[in-house]
Amino acid sequence: MAADSRPKRPFRWHIGVFLAPAVLVYTAIMILPLAGTLQLSMFRNIEQSQVFVGLANFRTLFGDPNWSVGFWNALRNNTWFFIIHMLVQNPIGVMLAALLSSPRLRFAAFYRTAIFVPTILSFVIVGFAWKLILSPLWGVAPHLMDFVGLKSLFTPWLGKEQYALTALSLISVWQFVGIPMMLIYAALLSIPEEVIEAAECDGITGLSQFWKIKLPLILPSIGIISILTFVGNFNAFDLIYTAQGALAGPNYSTDILGTFLYRAFFGFQLQVGDPNMGAAIATMMFLIILGGVCVYLFLVQTRLRRYQF
């Protein structure tokens, strides 16, 4: 309080000094390039100079079949990629967290540590390891399926157009299930004992306790996980690139926005790289992610009840 009642102080330089490095690096390397990319998407390289063309790049992206087919394909695949994560990764994560947080569970620390292991590995390792496991050459996957009598169902999933994307999504789920698990686990631990005890006094235990008491309390965390999944998925690139290459084969069936952006920007095989079209695709990704974040912030988060204990 004493600080406030003092006479007006001179400009406090130290605030600037504390803020400057972070703000400078962040602005120069992140915000300005982001703005620059949005701007580049409105220019086109004509006779060695950048010319302002307004929304022409976007008209090309949506109108020219050379681009639009690829774009819609990538967007559709990306949406499917996201849906699989929402339907498989997050429910499994919630289930594991619920089991882990049950009181007096032995070896909880071991399970927690072990299940989180894939999350810390790089996409390169994950992509290649699964490529080897699913490879018909090595025969680990058919061999394992033989144990449960399902060998006849095995096909080289990563090589078939109709399965490859789903297979890759599930690999990604395998890798990242640890994140929803940990966040939900943290949320479950923060529910106070009294609430649970009160529920038990009322005879609400086990599964119904989870559905009626715990789930409503962890809904905000589930919201955060959903938006994190959304941003991560629409920005994904590494796993597809490692497992299927920049061409996202077979026949572009695993192409998502990240790989599409990479090809447009750097070119591949016969096509020359085009920074402006790359910027246009990045702008679309920006708008999609921004849209998702806004939906979350304004529609979901404001309706979720937060309980303060």
Binding site: I31, L32, P33, G36, G278, A282
Partner: peptide
């Protein structure tokens, strides 16, 4: 400063490379 938590830096790649 919190903006960057949600918007991935990757989207600025084209301009970062130019820079």
């Amino acid at each position: 400063l919190a903006l960057g938590i949600m918007i991935p830096i990757r989207l600025g790649t084209v301009a970062i490379l130019q820079l």
